[in-house]
């Protein structure tokens, strides 16, 4: 049994919140640069240049890449042989978000009582936390500040088994078409297929943890990722939906077994400001 202090978790989360919001991940930067080289629309080229320039300014000035510093979504992989001491895990995470956002000059975007009063909680808490128990004695923490523009364009449907691959493709393309410029393309398109109603959306979000350019290990799924990416980039929507070839940088699909009656599909979009930062304790 290995001990992990709650205070270390808090410090780590605070740091990850800030780093995620200032530094665009390398794989995303590389994908944007590649897209800039391949883009044919002059206007889209300019948009990609601005996005790259913005990431430099954010890095140099330690200013948020985007004013929407998001709902703080935290993914934990907790080793079954780790023991958290000196405090409550959820409170440690929450305090980390509180400190990270305040100290990092990040925006507080969370409101309580969503359907009525919508009063800002004032410290961007609470985070949304997903925990998986895994072998080992480590704690892997990933912070994903998820912006509203792209999150609001999420879609889920339970298709009929007979709708098959074509149904999954049509549902995804429809989601992208109807979203237009709202989710801030170029996008990373996260897709879950299978499981149950709530699990398919979790899979869609979890797929966004994958690096841009990394495919699902299952060749059939990887092929669908490729096919969908080329179809999405044929829509002409382009960066900011002002026209162009670069509507998405990647399509990431995660699958799970499902019930004989169902074909659940979830789409969770990530904007080009695909903020993500991981640490292992």
């Amino acid at each position: 049994m290995r001990e992990i202090r709650a205070s270390a978790i808090t410090e780590t989360v605070a740091r990850l919140c800030q780093e995620a919001n200032y530094y665009l991940p390398e794989d995303v930067l590389e994908a944007l640069k590649r897209a800039r080289q391949e883009e044919e629309s002059p206007r889209a080229q300019q948009v990609l240049d601005v996005i790259l320039q913005n990431s430099q300014i954010a890095r140099e000035k330690q200013i948020a890449l985007c004013q929407d510093t998001g709902t703080t979504v935290i993914f934990l992989e907790l080793g079954q042989d780790a023991h958290i001491v000196g405090g409550d895990l959820l409170e440690a995470l929450t305090e980390g978000v509180r400190r990270g956002y305040k100290g990092g000059f990040l925006r507080n975007s969370m409101v309580r009582q969503p359907f009525s009063r919508r009063v800002n909680t004032g410290d961007n808490t609470p985070p949304v936390v997903h925990t998986e128990i895994v072998p080992g004695d480590r704690l892997k923490i990933t912070v994903m500040p998820k912006g509203g523009g792209c999150e609001n364009m999420s879609r889920m449907a339970i298709l009929r088994p007979g709708d098959g691959k074509q149904g999954v493709m049509d549902f995804t393309l429809r989601t992208i078409e109807e979203s237009g410029g709202n989710p801030c393309p170029p996008l990373i398109v996260g897709i879950g297929i299978g499981g149950s109603a709530e699990y398919v959306m979790y899979l869609a979000k979890k797929s966004l943890l994958r690096k841009v350019g990394e495919h699902n290990p299952d060749p059939e799924v990887a092929e669908l990722e490729e096919e969908l990416l080329s179809r999405i980039n044929a829509t002409g929507i382009g960066p900011q939906a002002w026209g162009g070839r670069t509507t998405a940088l990647a399509v990431n699909i995660e699958t799970f077994a499902t019930h004989i009656t169902a074909l659940p599909v979830g789409v969770n979009l990530q904007c080009h400001s695909a903020r993500l930062k991981t640490a292992v304790l």
Partner: peptide, 21 residues
């Protein structure tokens, strides 16, 4: 922008029959 840069029709399947939320 979309009219200028679109390369093919977006949907080949029974798009209109899909559930939509």
């Amino acid at each position: 922008g979309k009219a200028e840069w679109r390369r093919d029709a977006p949907f080949k399947g029974a798009y209109s029959e899909l559930p939509h939320n």
